[in-house]
Design a protein around this nucleic acid. Sequence first.
RNA 1: GGAGCCUUAGCUCAGUUGGUAGAGCGUUUGAUUUACAUUCAAAAUGUCACAGGUUCGAGCCCUGUAGGCUCCACCA
Length: 970
Amino acid sequence: MNRYGFDMQALLAQRGATLRSSLAARLYTWDEIAEQDEEESIGMTEMIEPAAAPAATPPPGGEMAKAYSHAEVESRWYDWWEAQGYFRPERDPAKTAFTIIMPPPNVTGELHLGHALTTTIEDIMIRWKRMQGYSALFLPGFDHAGIAGQYVVEKELARSDLTRHDIGREQFLEHAWAWMRKYIPIISNQFRRLGASCDWSRARFTMDAGPARAVRTVFKHLYDKGLIYQGERIINWCPRCMTSLSDLEVESEETPGSLWTLRYPLADGSGSILVATTRPETMLGDTAVAVHPDDPRWQGMIGKQATLPLTGRTVPIIADAAIEQGFGTGAVKITPGHDPLDFEIGRRHGLPAINLMNTDSTLNANAGTYAGLKPSAARAAVLEALAAQGLLIKTEPHTHVVPHCERCNTILEPLISKQWFVRIQPLADPAIAAAQDGRVGFVPDRFSKVYMHWMSNIRDWNISRQLWWGHRIPVWTCANGHEFAGADEPETVTACPTCGTAEIRQDPDVLDTWFSSGLWPFTTLGWPDQTPDFDYFYPTQVMETGYDILFFWVARMLMQGLENTGQVPFSTVYLHGLVRDETGRKMSKSLGNTVNPLQAADRYGTDALRFNLATGSTPGNDMKFSESRLEGMQRFANKLWNATRFIVFESGSATRRVSAEASRTPALPPAERLTLADRWIISRQHALAGDVQRLMEDYNFGEAGRLIYDFMWGEFCDWYLECAKGPLNGSDAQATADTVAVLRWTLERGLRLLHPFMPFVTEELWQNLLGRPADADLPANAQSICVAAWPRPVDAPYDAAAEREFGLLMAIITAIRNARAEAIKDAPEGQKADLARKRIPAYLAAGESVALLQGQTAILARLAGLEPGGLEIAAALPAAGSAPGMTTLVVEDVAVALPLSALVDRDAVRNRLASEATQAGDEIARVEAMLANEAFMSKARPAVVAAQHTKLAAARDRLAALQARLASLD
RNA sequence: GGAGCCUUAGCUCAGUUGGUAGAGCGUUUGAUUUACAUUCAAAAUGUCACAGGUUCGAGCCCUGUAGGCUCCACCA
C-alpha cells in the first residue's frame, strides 16, 4: 500500500462479490455509477461489497432450456475459471511463454467499443495459445492517463466549486488516488465481463511503486547518458490545461480565417514593405521581416530596417530561404516568440524573441497597451489601430491550419518555454533497425512503412508537463546550483550528492503519460529487477492495439525496450482499426453515437459481441458497428445451444445420454462402421481445423471465425445433423450409438475451435456435452475447455472420396428441392400446399454412381422430401421415370426424374433443359479452348490443368445427360 | 506538399500463393405434430469504381484517372 492507501492486489481481490452482486445481473454505465455516488464523497469504495459467495458457482445440471440465455450462462463461468487458476500461468520451463500485455485503459471513462475490440482480439490469441499448451500470460493494467486523469478529477472537484489550486497539490493527489481506487476495480470487472482471460494477480497500475521506480530508473539512465536535457524551446502550450504538450498531442484543424496584408514603413522613409499574416496580433512581438533571398520584388530591401507599427521599434529585413515566394506578398513578419518556423529563422539570424503571452494566453506587459487582452480581442484591436493608420492593406478569406489540444480542443499557443526533452535520434536508430531487419513485424504490413516514415523524421520529445497528476520528474536542484537525477523514492532524497546540502528542490513538473506507457512491456514484469517473470515472459510476442497510437505508444515502447532491455519488447505489432457507427462516423460523446459495449453484451451476450467484433473486419481496417450483425451472432449462440441440446438430451434416445457420460474425450467409432455422411463430416471437420489454424497463424481471425460459423451452422447443423436423424430414430442400436459418437466428436472439436471467440457459450456447451454430472458441483479439478487441447490439424483433404461422394449427394438433394420449389411456385393456387407437403417418388439414372446412391436412399429421401419406397435408382433411367409428366434434372452424370410436370408447362421444362444444355456446351467450349491453348498447357500448374480436365469431363457428362432427357421428352 | 487505405449484390462486408465471385441483413416464395421461428428450404439481384498494361488467364499484380477516408508535414 502506498501513502495514498492504494494497493492494487487488495483492490482487485474484492472484485468477485461485485461481479455477482451487481455487474453480472446488470451492468451499470459510467453515468449510472456516478449517479449512485451523487451524494457520496469521492473516494468511497462501497461499490465493492465484501466477498460472500464461493469463488466457483457451478452450472445447474439437468435439462437444457429451450432457448439460450446468455445472461445466465455468462454470469456463471468467469469466477470459476479465475478461481481455478487457468489465467495464471506458471513459469514452466517445459512450456513456451506466450505473452500479451494489455494496452492499459485510462482510468477516466467508461469502456468503449475500442476496448472491447482490442480485448476480444487479444483474448482470442491468448485463449488459442493457452489451448495449444503455451504458458499464456495476458497481463492487464491501468493507465493514470496524465492530462486526462487530472481533468476528470478537476471536473469532480468542480462539482464542489473547487479548483485544484484551492486545495493544493498534496490534497489534489489524495483525490486523484481516491478516484483510481474507486474506478480500477470497476473497470477490471468490465474486462471480466468481456471474458478477458487476464491474470489479475499480475495486474499493474502505471503509478504503482514498481512501475514508478522503473520510470525514475529510466529517466536517470537517459539523463546521465545525456539523452534527456532541459532547454528553452518553442513548444505547444494549452492555455486551458496550462501545460506544454508534445507535437503528437497537437490536433491540426483546418479553420477558416483571414489573411491580412500589412504595410510596414521602412525606417529610412524610402518606402515600405508589405507582409501577409494570419495572426496580426503577434506583430507586437515581431523582431524581423523576412523575404526569400532570390525574390526580385524585395531585393533592394534586404538589409534595411523597417519600423514596426504600433510599437515604433525598428526591425531588420532579412533574407531566408525558408520563405515561399509564391505565398502572400513574399514577405513575412517574423515572430520568434510565437511561431515555430519564425523561431527557427530567429535562431538562424540571431534575432531576439519577445514573449507576448501569459500562460492563460492573455497578452502580457510586452504587448504594451494591449496587455490583458485575449488573443481574439487583441487581434481586433491591433487591426483597428492599423486600419486607422492606413497600414491595413488587404483582408482576404484564407483557410489555415490551427493547432488544437488533443484532449480539450482548446486552441494551442506556440510559445517559448523551458522544458525537458528526450534527445530521440539515438533511441530511434535502433528501433528503425529492428523493423528493417525483421526483429519486429507489423500486421498488416503496410504499417511498417508508416512507422519507418515517422521514425525517420522524428523530433526531440517534450516530456515535461505542468501538471500535478503523474510521475514527478526525478530531478533536484540544490541551493548551490547542483542538478541531479535520482531513481530512489522521492521521499528518501534528502541531500545533494555533490555538496551534501539538504536545501534541495524537486522539479515541480510531471512526465508525459506516454513516457511511462513506453516502458509498459517490461515494467509490468518487474523490471528493473531481474524478476523470474521478466526472465520467463519477456520479450513478449504480440502487441495488439489501435493504429491511432502507433506513434504515441508502439514506437516509444520499441525505442525504450531496446534502450533499456536490449531487446525488442514484442516481435509482432498487430494493429486494429477504429470502430465506427453504422453510418461510418467516428464514435464520440458529442455526436451521441457511442455504443456502450457492456450494454451490447447485456442485450446480445458477450459471446455475440466478441464474435461480431472479431469477424466484422480485417486487420488495420476500420469497421462499422452494426446491430443487425450482432443479432445474427446472438442467433448463432442459440443455434449452437440447440444443436448441443439435441445431441445431449433430445429425441428420446437413452443411448445418447449414457454414452455422453461414459467418456470425457469423444472417440470416433471404428472406420468400418462409419457411414458416408460420417466420413464426410469428419473430413470437413479436419479441413476446418487446418484452415482455422492457418488463418489464425496469419492473424486472420475474422476469416477463421467465419469458417467456423459456416461449418457449424451450414455443414454440421443443416446437413450432417439432419442426416443423423435417420440412424438416431432407427432401430439399430449400434448405428444410433455410432452416430451419437460422431455427433459428439464433431461438436466437441467445433466448440474447441470456437472457444477463443465465444468463451462462455462454448464452455457451457462443452460441459453439458461431456457429461457434467447433473446437479452436482464441479469438482475443483474439473477440466475446462479453457485448457482443453487445441485440435491439431491433419493434412487435407482427410477423406477426398467422402467429400466428393457426399458432395454429389448434396447436389442432387439441392437440385430436387429446387425443382420442387419451382414447381410449387408454378402450380395453380389450390394445389400449392398439397404439392409442398406431399412426399413424391423419384427415379434416378445414376451411371457410375449407381452403387453409391443406392446406399444413400435414406438420406436422399429424408433431405429431399422423397417417398422412401418410391425411390428407384439404376444405371439407366427406370421405366417409371420415362413416363409422361416427369420433370427431369441433371446433376453431374446423374439424371433425376420427378413427377412434377403434370402441374407445369412441358415447354417450360424443355426450355430450361435446353438452356442448361447451352450453358454446359459453353463451358465445354471454354475449357476445351483452354486445354487446347499451348501456352496454358505449358505454363499452368499441373493441378490447375487437372482441375480443368475434371471440369470438362463433368460438363460433358452433364451435357450428355441433358441431351438424353431432351430426347426422351419428345 | 508527401504517404497510405477504401471503391465487390439493395445495405454491411469477406474474398492471402492470379484459374470467370461469397456471407449476413434485407427482399420474394414455400414449410409449423420440428433440436432451434433466435428455424428450415428455395429464388432473385454483380460490366468486382473507370481506363490502360503484364499474363494463356486479373476482383486479386503494375500504371494512370475519378470519388471517399486517414495519417504525416513549420506556406506566414
